[in-house]
Design a binder for these strands. Structure first.
Lengths: 362, 362
DNA sequence: CTGAAAGCGCTAACAT
DNA sequence: ATGTTAGCGCTTTCAG
């Protein structure tokens, strides 16, 4: 059975197609209650659903949005962002095309062309990490950027407020009484997040009247392994220099700090406090003890981007970056600093070699 | 400037719209090389791109696919699956609509209606965990299921071969010489994976001539915490009963086994071998030592589903479930069993209480 | 080898 | 309060 058309409904209801169109689109004007009813029933009877394609051709508005992203595959954050965008689109009666380019410029071009051909009403250009991008030619002029900012302005964008997030993280430590606080940073200069969180770190230190010790700003590979290595170095510092609290660039690196601490018999948070960033469920919540961290507002950013792209949310400035707050998630990895710094084993830590005999249970 | 139409190109090239259409669509027939050239140039000159909407209305084929999923947000697997589907769609010149329902039936209905109105050429119904679903009314008859199977047949579907995967995992342990192998299962009976992996476990044991010990099939909450608790119980078994290898339902639980083992001073893989499942990058690869696990072929499944949905891959049977192989990823958590079972500390393990003083570095 | 014209299903200006 | 009708931009017969 072929799809019912508007004329079928009109015939069954004994009215014109105009009338059907009017009632299907809930146009306020005219049309008596009784007619409306009749049309509704006829539509149901023949199983009518308006064709978005025909409507799109006629109105030149398709009620679709294109979401172009560099990587959905490799990051656990993608989902929350998509979900936020998704939900906002649904609320506004729009459908979203998802286009993943893998960062490939040629594919990006193709994607933009396809979306243009499809006459999407809006576009969102999303990155999976907060960074600066050169927005490709051909995107709709009102495109909004998600989790990235345009290198030369010209677009509205939404990104996490990494500076404030970094400051908030460090304030957790300060509030618990810590004075020697390290920033275990990534060694990858790409993401803006690294620099911004560092600024936040310095800001929170300054407002607490603590002089930042450059020796406490260390870098490592962005992984548990890298975090562990950097933490070892920090824990090898002389007692009076050693940090009592460590703010980590992300949760993965914080997991490395846990490993380093536990291998030395240091208890978290009794002997060492740690704060992460990202609130990666699989990591932060599953640590022992659960990790206090700063959450990236991916869902909210996705929603925001979609709402302004669709004009649901009026955002005055055509060329402004919206900073989204990163809430701190308090769990159990922060406590007061030890009265006297716990004495770690002075032996050079070895990351690979393993002592010949098993240690007794703690 | 308004969008260029086919008639604009025709005017510039001095030909009819028919001719333009023919060359734009690479229709083999007629049209001299010279005319083609002229049309191409005209198209470029006016910046012409065919309207997919108009074409869709005319041809009744939109070159779009709807991908309905229960949850993209909460699982780190979603990305790979979407990427696979995505790539296959692009290869076939299709665009994909992503619709996340959050498992809500009303939203699911809406989604299906919207896709129907949009006249998508195909639909994929995806789950984020291998399970049995009751496919909702209204989906296209040739819809393909991704990572789930239909409760009453009637649809093609693709799921991971969890049985073979479970067997492969256990064979890793058997091949290393283990005889007392535990299966640390989830306590959630929902996913088919639990049952299937258990069957695989039993199968691998049987083929190695090992009698399965029911005491070695334990369950726990599906998390690192649950894995740790279950592992404690296993490690508390008397020496001659204790497993030397543990196959875990997933990587998260395996991470819990690591914690339990390390807290007792047990070295992996020297004192205990462990195999996970899922190959979650953030977990498996970052363990110390890196975890040997079984990968879920999400990308391949996504691709497969899209290819059969689009008819690119001819899959004879209209009503068959395709089993996708789960490759084992060898890392460093499996070794030969200890010559003599390492003696763990006999004291009852406590999961929350913490001894008053830090233990010395191992 | 090329063109004219019908029509996909809908909305909206204009009649009545 | 309701109906007629002209397109939206394209593909595709059917005629030359």
């Amino acid at each position: 059975m072929a799809r019912a058309r508007i004329s079928d409904v009109a015939a069954v209801a004994g009215v014109s197609v105009t009338t059907v169109s009017l009632v299907m689109n809930d146009v306020e004007s005219r049309i008596s209650q009784e007619t409306r009813q009749r049309v509704r029933e006829a539509a149901r009877a023949v199983g009518y659903a308006p064709s978005s394609v025909a409507r799109g051709l006629r109105t030149q508005r398709t009620r679709t949005v294109g979401l172009i992203s560099d990587q959905i595959a490799t990051t656990p954050f993608a989902g929350r962002m998509l979900a936020g965008a998704q939900d906002a689109a649904r609320d506004a009666g729009h459908l979203v095309y998802l286009l993943d380019t893998g960062g490939d410029a040629a594919i990006e071009r193709e994607a933009i062309d396809a979306l243009t051909a499809q006459q999407v009403d809006a576009m969102i250009y999303a990155c999976m990490w907060h960074r600066v991008v050169d927005v490709p030619q051909g995107v709709l002029p009102k495109t909004v950027l998600l989790d990235c900012r345009p290198v030369n302005g010209g677009y509205r964008s939404v990104v996490p407020d990494d500076r404030a997030g970094g400051a908030a993280a460090v304030r957790e430590l300060v509030a618990a009484g810590h004075r020697r606080i390290a920033y275990l940073d990534t060694d990858d200069p790409g993401p803006l997040a690294s620099r911004l969180r560092h600024e936040g770190y310095l800001e929170a230190l300054a407002e607490a009247g603590i002089t930042a010790d450059p020796a406490l700003h260390v870098r490592g590979e962005t992984s548990a392994h890298g975090g562990r290595a950097a933490a070892e170095a920090l824990l090898d510092l002389p007692d009076d220099k050693r940090p009592t609290g460590i703010f980590c660039f992300n949760d993965r690196m914080a997991a490395g700090v846990y490993i380093a601490a536990h291998r030395r018999g240091l208890d978290i948070p009794r002997d060492l406090s740690v704060v992460g960033y990202d609130d990666q469920q699989l990591i932060a919540a599953e640590q022992d003890p659960p990790l206090t961290t700063v959450a990236l507002p991916h869902y909210a950013m996705g929603r925001w981007a979609m709402e302004v792209a669709l004009g649901v949310r009026a955002e005055g400035d055509e060329d402004a970056t919206h900073l989204m707050e990163c809430p701190v998630i308090r769990r159990d990895s922060v406590g007061p600093p030890p009265a006297q710094v716990a004495k770690p084993n002075r032996r050079r830590a070895s990351h690979t070699e393993r002592p010949p005999e098993a240690a007794p249970d703690r």
